[in-house]
């Protein structure tokens, strides 16, 4: 598939004080790809995404998005990006509709367009009854849906999704899964990071595995399977991150939990 390059990382390196978080990441992403960006906790996934969104400065290497170097400081490239943050951060005291309207306007949409589109999308996600309720009263799943809407409202060409499915029920997950596939077919690019391997395996057409700030595997699921003798992505993940101790750790934990619990005098 020969298509347009959407983002390109060249030798991306990032240090937090003496600690090296990204250790020379090279990555080219093309139009219409769904990238599953995976790796153990602390591998540098969120840092990569935050650098691309312009949330973190002080990196070394080159970051190009839609062909422009983001270190030049022009924020206009962000207009074509949608983002779902990992911890469902939002202005909780606003109502869902107000929040969506606000984000839409920040992306340069017209006030009434943003409102109309937001209402229609809320309707599709079964949130029409709570459109005028505050986000602080939302359940985790409802809030997550609102944030997904806010990332799509301005029709972005590139989506960054950080654990986008946390808190969603099985039906909503199926909608999102289908949604991502259709968006990608339409030529949108999706950059997706998650710890749920089954989903990454199903959704992504390209999987990038980051370990200790470096890309250790990059390819489609079938290509990754060739690297490993085991079956599921979860197994491949274990193998490539060199983790085999799950059973012995669990045994140790169970035994520690059981210790001294009966003579505690509370």
């Amino acid at each position: 598939m020969e298509s347009e390059k959407v983002l390109s990382l060249t030798d991306l390196t990032m240090n937090y004080g003496p600690k090296r978080v990204l250790n020379g990441v090279d990555l080219d992403v093309f139009k219409g790809q769904i990238i599953g960006y995976i790796g153990p906790n602390g591998a540098g996934k969120s840092t990569t995404v935050k650098i691309m969104l312009g949330l973190i400065d002080g990196f070394e290497g080159k970051v190009e998005i839609f062909g422009c170097d983001i270190s030049e400081g022009n924020p206009d490239y962000k207009r074509r990006i949608g983002y779902v943050p990992e911890n469902a951060e939002a202005y909780d005291t606003l109502t869902a509709l107000e929040y969506l309207q606000f984000t839409g306007e920040l992306y340069g949409m017209d006030n009434s367009d943003a409102k109309e589109k937001a209402l229609r999308l809320l309707n599709e996600f079964d949130l029409e009854d709570v459109a005028h309720k505050r986000l602080s009263s939302f359940s985790k799943g409802m809030k997550q849906k609102t944030l997904i809407i806010s990332s799509l409202l301005h029709d972005p060409d590139l989506l960054f999704l950080d654990e986008p499915l946390s808190g969603l029920d099985a039906n909503s997950i199926m909608i999102i899964q289908e949604l991502l596939a259709q968006l990608a077919a339409q030529g949108k690019t999706i950059f997706y990071s998650s710890h749920i391997m089954d989903l990454v395996e199903k959704i992504s057409n390209r999987i990038v595995l980051l370990v200790e700030g470096k890309v250790v595997a990059d390819g489609s699921f079938t290509e990754l399977q060739a690297l490993s003798e085991k079956g599921t992505l979860s197994d491949i993940f274990n193998q490539l991150t060199g983790f085999t101790e799950n059973k012995t750790i669990a045994e140790r934990v169970v035994s520690i939990v059981g210790e001294g619990s009966h003579d505690a005098d509370l």
Binding site: P75, K78, P85, E89, Y91, T103, L106, G108
Partner: peptide, 14 residues
């Protein structure tokens, strides 16, 4: 810096 993720991801200058 709490709303950094909300505002700085949008196309507005710092």
């Amino acid at each position: 810096v709490r709303d950094k993720n909300i505002l700085n991801t949008k196309p507005i200058n710092g």
